[in-house]
């Protein structure tokens, strides 16, 4: 019994750990897309953030400095995105793709030039990383069966960014649905003309959304390189930005449903990690590549089983111009 609980709890705990970058990116995408900017560039912003975090954390031996750098770099990328598709009304998808390619190239070039370790950053010492935190009374509650296991292994023992992410979801929901900024954000993605004639600057609002998107992607990047791993690795985002985008679509651009979609993807990822090399009854050992493909396959199935266009912000993808 206790063994089963332990197994389940540890599976869920790794689900949570794997979900964090997805959730952050999906929330980032939520801001961008609710404002009317399709954000294919989540992946690139996250990757750039991951590299910035690992580099600065290494130089300054501080995880928090790394986080700040990640957010700044990622915001800079978001501003370039905004400059292309808000100021110059460029194709949003193309701009996002440009950022993705640019991030892959820049991080590899700079890592190679700065650290001479073949495109990765040096391994970070514990002090320069976000380390697991123990919640209060872990020792006392840990003794209680089941509940103790859940408390110690599922709720406690994560790093600061995990708790930050958990707190951010309700905050984002509140901002989007209960504040002036949220009202305007939701409006500008649906009908920017209405926002413009109400005396609000469409461009400024969209830039603000891109700032939020950049900041969140930066946190996601820092999580990858300074919390989950101890260095930046080439292309370490591995499509997570796109999974997050799919989760956002599946979550109908709403914070809470999107959170659950991210958890589903992360669960698939956690599960595939567990199943590697395991003999399944009746099937035998599943090839490792098939397991690794599981999250991507799941994304496809969810996207295909669910027609997303009906719920998308109506003006997303369309550069704003006063003339119709």
């Amino acid at each position: 019994m206790e063994d089963l609980v332990l197994q389940t709890v540890s599976l869920l705990a790794s689900t949570v750990r794997l979900a964090v970058p997805l959730i952050l990116c999906a929330l980032a995408g939520l801001f961008a897309e609710r404002s009317g900017v399709v954000d294919i560039g989540l992946e690139g912003k996250m990757l750039a953030g991951a590299f910035a975090a690992a580099s600065v954390a290494f130089w300054l031996q501080s995880a928090w400095a790394g986080l700040a750098a990640a957010m700044l770099v990622s915001i800079a990328f978001a501003l370039v995105h905004g400059f292309a598709c808000i100021t110059h009304r460029g194709n949003q998808v193309v701009a996002g793709m440009a950022l993705n390619v640019l991030a892959v190239g820049l991080t590899a070039v700079l890592a190679f030039a700065w650290f001479q370790e073949g495109g990765k950053t040096p391994a970070l010492a514990d002090a320069a990383r976000f380390r697991p935190l123990q919640l209060p009374f872990a020792a006392e509650i840990g003794a209680v069966p089941v509940i103790g296991t859940i408390y110690v292994r599922l709720l406690s023992g994560h790093n600061a960014l995990v708790y930050l992410t958990a707190a951010l979801v309700p905050v984002v929901a509140f901002v989007v649905f209960r504040t002036r900024f949220g009202l305007r954000l939701r409006a500008v993605g649906e009908n920017p003309h209405a926002v413009d004639t109400a005396g609000i600057s469409v461009a400024r609002l969209r830039y603000e959304a891109m700032l939020a998107s950049g900041a969140l992607c930066g946190i996601a990047g820092a999580y990858l390189s300074t919390a989950q791993s101890a260095a930046f690795l080439r292309e370490m985002t591995a499509g997570k930005g796109f999974l997050a985008l799919a989760a956002l679509i599946f979550g109908k651009w709403m914070p809470i449903p999107t959170l659950f979609a991210c958890l589903i993807f992360a669960f698939a990822d956690a599960l595939q990690g567990r199943l590697q090399g395991v003999e399944l009854p009746g099937i035998g050992e599943v090839p490792v590549q098939a397991l690794q493909a599981l999250p991507y396959l799941l994304t496809l199935l969810l996207l295909a089983g669910f027609v997303g266009k009906a719920n998308a912000p109506r003006a997303s993808g369309i550069p704003y111009s006063k003339e119709k």
Binding site: R178, A187, A194, V195, A198, I200
Partner: peptide, 11 residues
């Protein structure tokens, strides 16, 4: 309300 929200919170 849009553009005349009367404060940072909507309530």
């Amino acid at each position: 309300l849009l553009g005349a929200e009367g404060g940072a919170l909507l309530k």
